[in-house]
């Protein structure tokens, strides 16, 4: 996945046109907001355009220039916020921070800005200024919903979140702690075998985690072997 902001030019039809979305991969349009101007980094505000928010990304398309448009994946949006403080920005706006591929290297970004060329991959802040500030709350909500649709890929916790145990279950487990402590004091007794009180799901869960522990232990043994040889 490419982090950061990028150019976006694929539009449907010949008119000002909606953006072409990746419908084959389930991308859907969630919200359209006309009359939004965009501010990239600390560059000047650009002319009005239309904001398209899909399940995957935020796309801004210029109304005047068909060739002009920007997109950023929700995966790259670190935070978004409603900014109404005139000290922060003169117009009420939706402020976003963008995660970029480039490491935090401010000299690069200032170089590209001073030379006048716009390197989108280094833009770390984006402001979306709706013509009517009353739209900000809606935009904020839509951004929240879509961000939640885009958890980190390969996030183990994300896949395993159906493990959540409620407070009731936590109390149950606390009741069993005394017995488990006895087991842990006996090193010959492997954890997970003697917990007759637990349901199958919990046993499996413990076994999975024990497996990981064994893997770690084996790696360490290899290291030690290597050092001996």
């Amino acid at each position: 996945m490419v982090l950061g902001l990028r150019n976006f030019t694929e539009r449907v039809g010949n008119a000002a046109g909606e953006p072409v979305l990746d419908a084959a991969n389930g991308e859907e349009l969630m919200h359209v907001q006309p009359g939004v101007s965009i501010v990239l980094g600390n560059r000047p505000r650009e002319s009005a355009g239309t904001l398209y928010i899909s399940t995957k990304q935020v796309i801004w398309l210029s109304d005047a220039d068909r060739a002009k448009g920007y997109a950023v994946d929700f995966l790259s949006l670190s935070l978004h916020a409603v900014s109404t403080d005139p000290e922060a920005y003169p117009s009420p706006c939706l402020y976003t921070q963008i995660e970029t591929e480039a490491e935090d290297d401010d000299s690069d970004s200032s170089d590209s800005e001073s030379s006048g060329t716009l390197d989108l991959s280094k833009i770390r802040e984006m402001r979306l200024v709706p013509s009517d500030p009353i739209q900000l709350d809606t935009l904020f909500q839509v951004f929240c919903e879509c961000a939640e649709l885009n958890p980190e890929p390969n996030d183990e916790e994300g896949e395993e979140h159906n493990w959540i145990f409620g407070a009731d279950q936590m109390e149950d487990e606390e009741a069993g702690i005394e017995g488990e402590d006895d087991i842990s004091q006996n090193p010959t007794n492997s954890i997970g075998q003697s917990n007759g009180d637990h349901d199958l799901a919990r046993t499996v869960l413990e076994l999975q985690i024990n497996d990981q522990r064994f893997e770690d232990a084996e790696e360490m043994e290899h290291d030690e072997d290597g050092r001996h040889i």
Partner: peptide
């Protein structure tokens, strides 16, 4: 440092917002 580098009123340290959504991974 970021404020100095950005050298403008748009910098992080002036970020004062009403409500804010922060991505868990950051």
């Amino acid at each position: 440092i970021q404020c100095v580098d950005y050298n403008s009123v748009f910098s992080f340290c002036k970020l004062s917002v009403r409500n804010c959504f922060i991505r868990g991974s950051v």
